[in-house]
Design a protein around this nucleic acid. Structure first.
Length: 264
DNA sequence: GGTCATGTTGACTA
DNA sequence: TTAGTCAACATGAC
């Protein structure tokens, strides 16, 4: 799940359920998601504190704990938050559990353990370390977007997915944005016309915003979205042609050969 | 057994 | 130097 829209929805979920509650205990179920961070350090720093606010950049969520203390959360491919009002044993694959003094708990679930938590003094620390580009939704203007595409030597899909270029777009949403714009995933970014890049920019914003509005629920997304038709051979929701799959930068790209022609 | 899966990183190659 | 491909990480569903 976790691309920009998913993380934005997690942020809203966390903000409404996890902020301003004194933390009673931090329970580690799986230390692999802490990376180099020592479980004892995380517990000692969070215990007795409360989460104050949160901030999203690309696929990362930063949660403020104190003046110069932030918890960074990455969700890998399978991570999400799950809030329980009581001390019930959580379902799924709980990896880290934040127990609040009021008896409720915020669970960080990450089945495949590809996500990671860390402690930072400020979000910029991680953004610089990972060399993340501007957030796709908040920080990329149309002119900057145009520059990125005209100067990129990679394929359009790779350019959209490169976190150092634009932060937040992954495999699913890069396919969706290209599909909605009618651009073939393997076309070179720099070969797109200025008009196409402008349309792509508009669709990027529209697709990401719409996904957030509909709470990334596939059932609530428009009928003509590719998102729930990611199987080779199924009919394109726009024209009925058969959806195809190709590899782009090691990932499966789904597209409609009729709606997304190879020519610019 | 095999393939595939919403992410990131490092090795290797052109 | 810039990109593309592939493998690895860990787990599960076909």
């Amino acid at each position: 799940m976790p691309e920009l829209p998913d993380v934005e929805v997690f942020k809203e979920y966390f903000d409404s359920n996890g902020l301003d509650k004194p933390i009673k205990e931090v329970e580690m179920r799986e230390e692999a998601v802490l990376g180099d961070l020592q479980p004892r350090v995380l517990r000692n720093i969070l215990k007795g504190e409360r989460f104050l606010s949160s901030l999203r950049h690309g696929k990362y969520l930063f949660i403020k704990v104190g003046d110069a203390t932030w918890l960074s959360v990455h969700f890998g491919m399978t991570g999400y938050f799950d809030y329980y009002q009581t001390e019930l044993e959580p379902d799924g694959h709980p990896r880290v559990i934040f127990h609040f003094k009021d008896g409720s708990q915020m669970v960080y679930d990450c089945q495949r353990k590809l996500g990671e938590l860390d402690l930072l003094s400020e979000p910029a620390e991680l953004i610089e370390e990972k060399n993340l580009g501007p957030d796709a939704l908040k920080d990329v203007g149309q002119d900057e977007f145009k520059d990125i595409f005209t100067s990129s030597r990679a394929m359009a899909k790779s350019t959209l997915m490169n976190q150092e270029t634009i932060a937040g777009i992954g495999n699913i949403y890069s396919d969706e944005i290209l599909f909605q714009t009618g651009i073939h995933p393997r076309i070179k970014a720099s070969r797109l016309t200025s008009e196409k890049i402008t349309r792509l920019y508009g669709k990027m914003n529209q697709v990401l915003n719409r996904a957030i509005e509909r709470e990334v629920d596939p059932e609530k997304l428009p009928e003509d979205y590719l998102l729930s038709h990611r199987t080779p051979g199924t009919p394109c929701p726009k024209c009925g042609s058969k959806i195809e799959r190709v590899k782009v930068s090691g990932r499966s790209a789904y597209f409609c050969p009729e709606c997304q022609k190879v020519s610019a």
